[in-house]
Design a protein around this nucleic acid. Structure first.
Lengths: 203, 203
DNA sequence: TAGATTGTTAATCGATTAACAATC
DNA sequence: TAGATTGTTAATCGATTAACAATC
């Protein structure tokens, strides 16, 4: 009955959530018009997006801000704690490990993997760095289903295959190369250089 | 006459470019069908996207791979060298500084800025770290128009304002907060935590 | 009650895909 | 020539916006 949320709407939900959280605590109600105005988008679009979550607004007053935050967090699964791992403990992997923002979404980065003996066995930001060969025992033990791929391009496919074999169900890929995975595994590719090039060509 | 390329098509051009470069050197010709197949998309879409560049294919043989790469590079402005700076020399800023991939697109990261006296004056990956107060002389001197914003959320708007005042025309924003800029400045927001949360909710 | 805002249905807009003529 | 592939025009699909009834 209820249609699945389009990915493009899903991508806007964290933006709404951030905005709602940024409002001062005495702001009890918000309207779609207020959100739309602040974020530079159409108000009907905001209502449509919010309708995919369990959010319910009231005519004349709008949405209760706290309820709306809860609805968005529920929809995004922020309540359910989920474990993630990082593959590649280079500069980017370490930056991601040290980044605290994941906890807002119920995600915990629990470990990193690398093949460099220099890095293996140490801790980074309080998290252990294991040899990649340990992935097949460590990942199931952690029940991790999310992975952030921060290895060089020439290792990306090989490491992605290992992650998939270990039960990882979604991969955020920072390597500048497309990786192939079974349909059951979702991949988001973030190519930082390509993004900057796109920006540059839009100037 | 010629319509402007939609942003969504523009975003695919680096993907085509990477794929074409990944092919072995003896692959002289490529067809839209080959590219589409490899990338899991429709072949008409590939031809439409390529048509926005100056690429011209030939019926029956397809596109000359080398020509197509050149056409994409020209369109993306990879030939014209452009200077970029990083704001924020924390873990993420350092990771971006150390990342070599920008040169493929003609982009050179020339400097970083920070307000931490510990970091200012040092070099990271061979690039100088200046105090943010120097931005207004250094950025124009470098003729930098691109910036990567890697500061904490609570500084993001303030630092973005400085960058804009220094002549920056496009900002890639890694801070988990929306920033406001004049219409003349293009912003791409990459919220790593939000992206992982989206992925997670798609599992 | 009057008026503001929601939620939904219909219209529009833009992107993708299908169809096909051109051509090498 | 026959056939494969391009480039383009028309059709479809999906997302956004407009219109509006419901309602608090």
């Amino acid at each position: 009955m209820d249609k699945d949320i389009p990915v493009i709407s899903l991508q806007r939900l964290p933006i709404y959530l951030n905005y709602l959280k940024s409002l001062s605590a005495d702001k009890l109600y918000v309207t779609s018009g207020l959100i739309a105005e602040a974020l530079g988008m159409g108000e009907v679009l905001v209502r449509k997006d919010l309708a995919y979550t369990s959010a319910v607004g009231r005519p004349r007053v709008g949405y209760v801000r706290a309820e709306l935050i809860t609805a968005l967090e529920d929809f995004l699964g922020c309540k359910r704690r989920r474990s993630a791992v990082i593959a590649g403990a280079g500069a980017l992997g370490r930056a991601v490990l040290g980044y605290g923002g994941f906890s807002n979404y119920g995600i915990e980065i629990d470990a990193a993997f690398d093949n460099d003996a220099e890095k293996v066995g140490r801790q980074i930001a309080g998290r252990p760095v294991y040899d990649i060969s340990e992935a097949k025992t460590r990942i199931p033990a952690l029940r991790a289903e999310l992975a952030v791929l921060c290895v060089p391009a020439n290792y990306a496919q090989e490491v992605a295959d290992v992650l998939v074999a270990c039960g990882i169900k979604a991969i955020m890929n920072f390597a500048p190369v497309l990786i192939k995975t079974p349909d059951s595994v979702t991949v988001r590719h973030i190519d930082v250089a390509a993004n900057l090039a796109i920006l540059s060509s839009m100037i």
